[in-house]
Amino acid sequence: MPSGQAVTTVANPWFSWDYLERNGSDVLRYTQQHASLTVQAVLIAFVVALPLAALAHARPRLAGPVLATTGVLYTVPSLALFAVLAPVTGIGRTTVLIGLVLYALLVLVRNTLAGLQGVDPAVRDAARGMGYGRLRLLLGVELPQAVPAVVAGLRLATVSTVALVTVGVVVGYGGLGQLMFRGFRSNYHAEVMTATVLCLVLALVADLALALLGRVLTPWRRSSAAATPPASASEEAAWTS
């Protein structure tokens, strides 16, 4: 029996280069599908979330209803949401894309609104004193100041979307989730592990790319950090005493 178990383990490894060589086209196709769904969902959600957050910021009484609505959508289980959408939007990409956009909305609206609300009131007052109107204040002062919070929301929404794409397999369009489901169904370890690793790689690459984008869009943060001299030993002692 032990020898038979060993043969089974060797014949069905978790990592297999041979699997990639034989199924490279499938792996590439599902990886591209997974990445394109993620990018489209996050971009659409961002385009919707930005004006919603700006509206909630300009009209504070709307902030509660906007966050509550997006929050309710976020709490709906993904399987149930896809099942509800499928009779209306059909089986396939559209259903998955709508579900992913709805899930990303809460994170993006909440972070964007928090960034807008966190702008220093003194900065707003200075801009108003220079004759900035409401729209110019939003576009020229508040949104640039909110970029770090917006980027943080994009990073969180993107990573969570990479994971949620796999659930789309229930309506026949799940990117790498297709490989995972096929691997679990056939007990093919290499297929499951390949899809899992590629999901992790996609999430990591997307997160690093957005982190770099955030640094590029906020050069003043690096400049201010570089301009701040390190505290001397005497200053540190004075603060701690």
Results as ranks from 00 to 15, higher is better:
207 D>T: 02
167 V>Y: 05
185 R>K: 01
226 A>R: 14
42 V>W: 02
42 V>A: 03
118 G>W: 11
16 S>N: 13
185 R>T: 10
73 L>K: 06
21 E>W: 13
180 M>A: 07
231 A>L: 14
140 G>A: 06
212 L>K: 13
215 R>F: 10
232 S>L: 07
77 P>L: 02
175 G>W: 15
142 E>W: 08
234 S>R: 13
155 R>C: 04
47 V>C: 10
201 V>L: 14
143 L>C: 06
197 V>G: 00
85 L>Y: 03
202 L>W: 13
163 A>L: 11
118 G>L: 12
41 A>D: 11
86 A>S: 11
200 L>V: 15
126 A>Q: 00
86 A>T: 12
217 L>F: 05
205 V>F: 14
42 V>K: 03
217 L>M: 08
228 T>H: 09
178 Q>D: 14
98 I>W: 00
142 E>S: 05
165 V>E: 11
136 R>Y: 14
180 M>E: 02
196 T>R: 01
231 A>P: 07
208 L>P: 00
107 V>N: 08
51 P>T: 07
30 Y>A: 05
196 T>L: 13
19 Y>E: 03
58 A>E: 12
126 A>G: 00
125 D>C: 03
172 G>E: 07
91 I>F: 14
193 M>A: 15
186 S>C: 00
166 T>F: 13
220 W>C: 11
184 F>C: 00
233 A>R: 15
19 Y>T: 01
225 A>P: 00
3 S>C: 01
3 S>P: 15
15 F>M: 12
142 E>D: 13
12 N>S: 07
154 L>Y: 03
40 Q>C: 07
10 V>W: 09
105 L>E: 10
124 R>M: 00
52 L>R: 01
85 L>D: 01
47 V>F: 11
68 A>S: 11
214 G>F: 02
128 R>I: 07
76 V>W: 08
182 R>M: 08
72 V>W: 09
120 D>V: 11
12 N>V: 10
68 A>W: 12
143 L>F: 12
88 V>L: 06
232 S>V: 05
90 G>D: 05
108 L>R: 05
67 L>T: 04
136 R>N: 15
220 W>K: 04
215 R>G: 15
165 V>I: 14
229 P>S: 15
155 R>P: 10
147 V>A: 13
219 P>W: 05
99 G>C: 03
149 A>K: 01
